[in-house]
Simulated scan of single mutants.
Amino acid sequence: MYSDTGDMTLLRRFGTDPGSLRAKTYIPNNLSKNGPLVVVLHGSNQSAESYNNGSGWSALADETGVALLFPGQRRSNNAIRSFNWFKPGDSHRGFGEPLSIRQMIRQVVDDHAIDPSRVFITGLSSGGAMTSVMLATYPEVFAGGAIIAGLPYRSAGTLMQAIFRMKGYGGPSDRTLDALVRGASNFAGHWPTISVWHGGRDTTVDKSNADSIVRQWQKIHKVEGPPTRIEKVDGVPRQVWCDADGRVAIEEYIISRMGHGTPIRGGGDDGLGEEGKYMLEVGISSTRRIADFWGLTQ
């Protein structure tokens, strides 16, 4: 079922795979029984390997004993290897790419005795938008999700709409955004926490999408209105919305000087990843801070 490909291992079989995706894993030697799993979705014109090298997730996995799953897009599905987050056949529970990713997760959880209550997901750009899809369509699977330079769930249904939404034009109302998530499954449990990251100078996916993602989840988490507090982390403003129990349900980082990509901090004792295309050195590691938010570094 598994085949070694360098540092990562190819997951050969994981169900019916209706979305015709690839899957690779990174399992650190210090993964314990009932350890956590992070699902990492690459962006357009990227691969699992290039995104991992840039973001540093496998280095963090070695530090913390976290298992990693890297779903991968095929050129036969999308010419620039984007996840098809806006297509109706790839944005609903039980179909297409979301079901393929769900099947991958189930396989890795079973094979490596993962704690099913500690499964998380993150992604960049189209991978960020597909992270929105997964959080909405399979909320029972995830304890938390982190959307980097992504878009709200079902904010577009066609390629033309996707292009407009990426540029910040139009989009569903807040009421509709809320209803879209609630209608994506029959879930009635504890919703996953949400981490949102975006560049203030992003000209590929306008930063207005970050605020729309926050609003899509505010009513669901019962944290409507202004943030509970604003603080600075590595010099970057972090807005947080806490629920009635004081738990941070949503966090948002808007990095004013950053364009389109994943924020990294490659230097220093706690640096992760490498600067490159869509991997932007801005002095803060989204990988480490997201892992902190999920309690994986404690």
Rank of each mutant, 00 (worst) to 15 (best):
S91R: 08
V66L: 09
A136K: 02
N29F: 09
K219V: 05
S285E: 05
T204M: 04
A149P: 02
I148C: 06
N29A: 15
A59H: 01
A48E: 15
G168T: 04
G268W: 11
R154S: 07
D245K: 11
E252H: 14
T25W: 02
K232W: 02
F187K: 01
Q298A: 12
P172N: 04
N29S: 15
N53D: 12
M8F: 14
D178R: 09
N52G: 11
S44P: 01
G89V: 12
Y169K: 13
L296Y: 06
Q73N: 03
I264S: 08
S58C: 06
A210D: 09
A162E: 10
D111Q: 01
N209Y: 03
L124N: 11
G56Q: 01
A143V: 01
P36A: 13
G123C: 00
S285K: 04
V119Y: 04
P71V: 00
E97F: 06
Q103L: 07
Q298T: 15
T5S: 13
P71Q: 08
R13P: 04
G268I: 14
T228Y: 07
N78E: 15
L296Q: 02
K207L: 14
S132M: 10
G65H: 12
D206C: 12
V66M: 12
V181E: 04
G19V: 05
Q239Y: 11
P18A: 13
G94H: 06
T204S: 15
I264F: 06
A79E: 13
M166F: 05
I147K: 02
R265K: 15
